[in-house]
Design a binder for these strands. Sequence first.
DNA 1: TTCATTTCTTAACATAGATCAAGTTGATTG
DNA 2: CAATCAACTTGATCTATGTTAAGAAATGAA
Lengths: 203, 203
Amino acid sequence: MYLIYIFEYMENKRPDHKLLYYLSKWTKINECDEHTILSSFDTLTIKKKKDILVVGEVCNHIYFIIKGCMRSYYADEKGIEHIFQIRMDNNWISDLESFFSKKPSNYYIEALEETTLLRISYDRLEKLYVEVPALERYFRILFQKAYLNSLKRLNATMWEPATERYADMLKENPEMFQRVPLVYIASYLGITPESLSRIRRQK
Amino acid sequence: MYLIYIFEYMENKRPDHKLLYYLSKWTKINECDEHTILSSFDTLTIKKKKDILVVGEVCNHIYFIIKGCMRSYYADEKGIEHIFQIRMDNNWISDLESFFSKKPSNYYIEALEETTLLRISYDRLEKLYVEVPALERYFRILFQKAYLNSLKRLNATMWEPATERYADMLKENPEMFQRVPLVYIASYLGITPESLSRIRRQK
DNA sequence: TTCATTTCTTAACATAGATCAAGTTGATTG
DNA sequence: CAATCAACTTGATCTATGTTAAGAAATGAA
């Protein structure tokens, strides 16, 4: 059964099925639920440099990136942009704070490449949790993992020098360096582009 | 119904009921489930400076602090301790990475005061998720919030000076300064005790 | 009540990384 | 094809925080 997803995923024939494939990794979902889930999502494609969320808007959706690259960021008082996340194929992106609180967001979410996404609204997701409890399990595990990742990144930012954080990222996320400008990667690492440039020279 | 919890919570007559009170804030649980949940937890009390987890052990439980104060930390190559979390009354503590992966932990979890805890094992929790789906919802929301908090702390660590992080913490967590030595608070803020001391003098 | 230990502070010096300012390279557009 | 703009690099200087070392204050134990 799941083999079909993998196959279609490889063939890229039904891009929306990638989501089911990823769900199936952590939770069991029957065929009936699959249809319920898929029908709750919309597909959209967004051009490079266009936003799916701007400051002041409530973030009403969470997005699953089928193919492409997105960043979320905010601008401080001086207008300097600070990047929160960079996400590529088969990852989720949203402003969860705004999404769950329904308050206006402090963030922008922008495409760094032409990107195809699945999206689901807050209300539709709440309904889905009730209709398909396995989905609540999936998101429990998703947030659990996201939390642990965030703690790891926090620890590295506090206690490891930027050179190491850079080296780790290069090792764990080499593709990002092919697809994302270094300015953004620097911000994601918590340093200035100048510092990143110097770190790269030394290697 | 929930009023009873609040009452008992205030009266401190049945400390284990605090957990139900906190569960009830985010999810609906019927009376039958309440018994199932409570009977899945053990109560334990641990003396100041004693560990409930040491490096190399698998963290088999997650703990809910009824009353007291715990810290989780690791020691780097130089033997310097870095604090991951400080948690007080009515919060959870564990090494989730070890807990979910069942691999040996890199952390210590130690009592900073005499502390009373509820604990549940991995296997028991997995069973509970099936028996009481509302609990899966509770933990989904718990991890969601923990993730957002962690992101906030990450952002502050990257882009705010230590003085601000200190001021924020003093405002949001004044009680911690009464109960936790400054060495630990410094580490939690990502700075040395010397720096914290300097920051405090300037105010 | 005294001694030992832990916690906290202070000062002098060192350093990673920021800031400012200027350039180079490469990509995009009219 | 030139012109503009975005991405990246480099150097000089500055600053927040770390490091080392010492001592004071507070706490706990004998």
